[in-house]
Design a protein around this nucleic acid. Structure first.
Lengths: 248, 248
DNA sequence: CCAAAAGTGTTGAAGTTACACCCATGC
DNA sequence: GCATGGGTGTAACTTCAACACTTTTGG
């Protein structure tokens, strides 16, 4: 039986990944464009995901989807929750598409959603077996997605926002070197509100998880900004003790 | 096939409920005691749960388990997340027990965990088909449970604690009438730290979700405390707008 | 020298913490 | 009258929000 054989895909449980990135001052999400004829663009786009194997745990499955798509390992990954109305695969185009890739397209599937944070420069998303194309899309321009993926995305953004105000997880979206202004723009994009420059710098610096470098911007038409690095040692210590307050 | 027939239990997905109550100044959890021979008490106790039907959504399934066990409907219910290491059913006694109640005891099962908050006086937990006995246990005295239920409980407590500091959900644990001291003891039990009486009262009253009544304690050996009621209308308005800060 | 973004302190308001005494009741 | 828990205010401290000008660079 399917659900006993460890090497088999389990027909009832999938993982979906909301992969966030930050570029051009906007929060982006990595979506796959599916093969086939679609009337509206929204139904064409979906979160990357797959059924789980019986032998792998949920985190492993999410990591597998992530690695297949992005080539990245060991990146920030957090479970959002389980989604699974019985009728989540009600759109006809979704049914057609499933028939084309799954052995048992009519099965009841519940999906465990994860979100992850990556630095867009670390990856070159490449088409996978499921996807015609893979691209970054600005979160604030997305109106709808396949299946119940829009709802999952909405929930992911909500949790990201909340988490960002508890812990400085946003560094996972930045490159190795960054300016404080870039950092601020990331916070503003995710929280969707402007922040005061002086208050922002004070708050970030008080956390003491930045290391100043001697590097500065070059070829800018204004006063060049200093580059900082993220101090992982202090960050980990903070995680242990818990950040009590960290609100913007 | 199982996973297509809407009236069938889905062999791969279950829900488990962490049902919290508050009595004798302690946070309690409702656990079932399983039939059978168990060496250690811990393995004997488990969270109530069941496989889901293919036709029901996850929330419905959790509500069904809850209602079967407690007779209560429409109570506070929140998803904790999905749990599902492939080896979560590794303890031998757990395997034996599953064989006794499930058609497909070897199947890979992932479980969606929920926690809920009830007033212990509203219910008379009664043995169900799965359980020899159902009882309240103090959370802080539990060392281990069947399957991975101890881990689920730990996560539930963590989320409850966090949520309680964001929103005044604790009222779901209280009866219709309560004194402010009782309320404070509930907060102290969940947060596991003493709170200042005057500061507590100030903070709660500022929320403006209490209605004072004319009732007072009777037959107490000290100054009788006033009973309050929970003002649901104002509470709902607050939920809409979001509580910004509500930390103890 | 002009345009553009970097970088830097202070002040008033609000919120949080710590703390001690009188009150009403049953026995 | 005494033991018990109910109920109340204030002062020091910390945190947060609002706000404007000087600096450095490229063109």
């Amino acid at each position: 039986m399917d659900s006993n054989n460890p090497k088999q895909l389990n027909p009832n449980v999938s993982v979906d990944c909301v992969i966030f990135g930050f570029s051009f001052d906007k929060l982006k999400v990595l979506l796959i464009e599916r093969e086939g004829d679609f009337v509206d663009m929204a139904a064409r786009l979906a979160l990357p995901g797959d059924l789980i194997f019986n032998h792998e745990d949920l985190h492993m499955a999410a990591n597998r989807v992530l690695e297949e798509l992005t080539g990245l390992k060991d990146i920030y990954l957090k479970q959002i929750g389980a989604f699974g109305e019985p009728n989540r695969i009600s759109k006809k185009t979704d049914q057609d598409w499933l028939r084309s890739i799954r052995a048992d397209p009519g099965a009841r599937v519940i999906t465990i959603a994860y979100y992850s944070l990556v630095n867009v420069k670390d990856l070159n998303p490449s088409p996978s077996s499921f996807a015609k194309a893979v691209n970054w899309y600005p979160v604030d321009e997305i109106q709808d997605l396949a299946f119940d993926h829009y709802r999952i995305l909405t929930e992911a953004v909500k949790q990201l926002r909340s988490e960002l105000q508890q812990r400085p997880i946003g560094f996972n979206l930045m490159g190795e070197y960054f300016t404080i202004s870039q950092l601020q723009k990331m916070y503003e994009a995710i929280l969707n509100k402007p922040l005061d420059k002086r208050n922002f710098r004070r708050k970030i610096k008080k956390l003491d998880i930045l290391s100043a470098t001697d590097l500065k911007e070059k070829n800018v038409v204004n006063k060049p900004a200093r580059f900082y690095k993220f101090n992982e040692a202090i960050y980990n210590a903070l995680i242990e003790n818990g950040f009590d307050n960290f609100g913007f």
